[in-house]
Design a protein around this nucleic acid. Structure first.
Lengths: 205, 205, 205, 205
DNA sequence: CATGAATGAGAGTTCATTCAT
DNA sequence: TATGAATGAACTCTCATTCAT
């Protein structure tokens, strides 16, 4: 009985999150109205507040849920990766998918945060960390041992490249063909990530 | 007389834009209130509407003004650049500065746009093109002649890497030392942009 | 349950309309503030917008409601009237009552309309037609068969006489004694409406 | 010199009044903006306040000016009239012309007044008296000596008939042919104004 | 648990009026 | 006298949140 109730509760929570995703994604955080989300979820407005204490909390919970799914998936795929090339391919594909789905959510995060209460800002900050972690973890494994750049910064370059490229396609309303994007990003980033260069800069200057 | 008036008008416009930058940057577009901008500019609320027809138009005008400054500066610096390394250095430095200053403006753009009238959306779209253009132009010059990736996509990788890296520092409230970031990004992207690889993927698989 | 809800909804709608009548009548359309109407109705400002989509729509709905009441009443009274004298008496009494109650509403109509959306202008136009119709209908019955003036124009004369006379009393803050007014208007208009004159003008000129 | 200055002053006042008429007439009092009036008059906004102390005062001054013109004209035409028929003809023609030109001004008067200061309300009240006076004066002359209805009330019937009839044409956007309207109103009102009836009502009831 | 009518603070925008030039 | 940039109070309308049912 308890279990069943929990399931029902989970179902409704999930439905609301899906409705929220639909609305937040299509309108952006600020323009999304709780009425719209309730309607999309097929529940009354008041019901939203039984599951989420505020619009802000609903938004952050959605980010968390989507991030958790992404991290679980990408961690699985990256577990056995050993080469930088494979790693890039998986990252572009999965993070690209995530970004296509949650484009505006992710972009919204840093903005909307500004007016959020401290506790929610912390949760958003953790989300961002979670989104970086899989990339950093795999880079720690696949980068050459004496690679001189902090993996966290390499991760920023990789993730930035992926997000921005996908974002450009989306803004131009072009179809996002992740296989092509993956090939290009691998081509551009591959050499820099697999070889340890003599640091001419250091000696030269 | 006319000249003087024009100057005065420009001054007030500029003051308002600076106040708007302050408020939009610290609160995000949606949370920024016209009262706050007016107060920050030291003018009455109604005065804002003498120079900008709406909050949306003020926001887009601000984006345009900052973009124009950036493009002018970066075009100047990139004019004589011939090597990918130098190019990266200039790009990271200038685009990084731009991003530090206008971080949330740029990020806001795609969101806030959603509810804007068509005419303003077009202006935002042009802004995005302008922000890409200098990078694409210089890449057209410095990439190896038979480089097999579209410069627009290379630009997305480069710009994404810069923005995301700088953004990460800002979110973590760490000081942004652009020289260091430039060195790292050059190190990572340099090899991939200066050599034309044998496409093993194509032949090998 | 449903019935009860409908009734409750109707009650609140009616209360708001009564409050709106009070405020619109005492201040005119433009000077009436939604806050005042809300306060007079004993509801919050936002509640008004649950029942009427805008101030304009509230105003037109009020006109419609009052007009419908008037037309229903006057149609009932005029149903069995056969003589011009009786007809005048009923018209002055009922239209006079209507005008005393809704003086400024009716007067407001043509003005306020100017800035209204097309759909609402159409509704106001229909209201005006409805206010004329009972008079035209009864005149069609009671005017002599070969009366040479279009009943619609006779109706304009009759209604204009009534409204203007009552309006004069109201502007002068004099008590409106409809019985006296009716007697006077009957005296003045009666002869012209009951006899068919030889048209000297036509033959003479 | 003084005279010339006065003339110039009068000219500008007159221009402003004409511009005000254009704007008030086409938009109604509330929707008319001082900017529009200034632009239509070809002067700066501030200049309006050199000639009229407020929007309200400008409006009332316009009413007064137009009323004075009307009264002067109609008094002249009615001076020698001795029969009710002629009198009706002149009244319909001149008052009809006035109403066509100033339709919304006159209608606006009673509304807009509501929020006006006492002093201006008094002026509006006087305007209304002035607009009635010529009709009352001429009726005093042409009504049969023992006509039992107060001429002021007869005037209300006559003026109401004229205004309402013309107003109906205007609202329906039909051309106003005053000669036809005059003929109809004469036909309807003529008999009642020229014969003294036995008051059946008094004796009969 | 679920509802949705009610709330009311707060938003963007307008415009009559002022006053330094 | 004439200007028009600046003002700021006042407006309509929105929407996250509450709570009686």
């Amino acid at each position: 009985m308890n279990l069943k109730n929990d399931d029902v509760v989970q179902d409704k929570r999930t439905e609301i999150l899906e409705a929220a995703e639909l609305i937040f994604t299509s309108r952006g955080y600020a323009a999304a109205r709780m009425d719209d989300i309730a309607e999309a979820a097929g529940v009354a407005k008041g019901t939203l507040y039984l599951y989420f204490s505020s619009k802000q909390e609903l938004f952050v919970s959605l980010l968390e849920a989507r991030t958790e799914e992404y991290v679980r998936t990408v961690d699985g795929w990256l577990a056995d990766i050993q080469s930088a090339d494979e790693c890039m391919h998986v990252l572009v594909t999965l993070r690209g998918q995530f970004f296509v789905r949650n484009q505006r959510l992710a972009e919204s995060a840093s903005h909307s945060m500004l007016g959020f209460p401290k506790e929610l800002q912390l949760r958003v900050w953790n989300i961002r960390r979670e989104l970086e972690r899989p990339t950093i973890d795999v880079l720690n494994r696949v980068l050459p041992k004496d690679y001189p750049v902090d993996p966290a910064q390499v991760a920023a370059v990789v993730n930035g490249a992926i997000d921005y490229t996908v974002g450009t396609y989306l803004l131009d309303d072009q179809p996002v063909i992740l296989a092509d994007i993956a090939r290009n990003i691998e081509y551009i980033l591959g050499p820099g990530l697999t070889q340890v260069q003599q640091e001419k800069r250091q000696t030269g200057s």
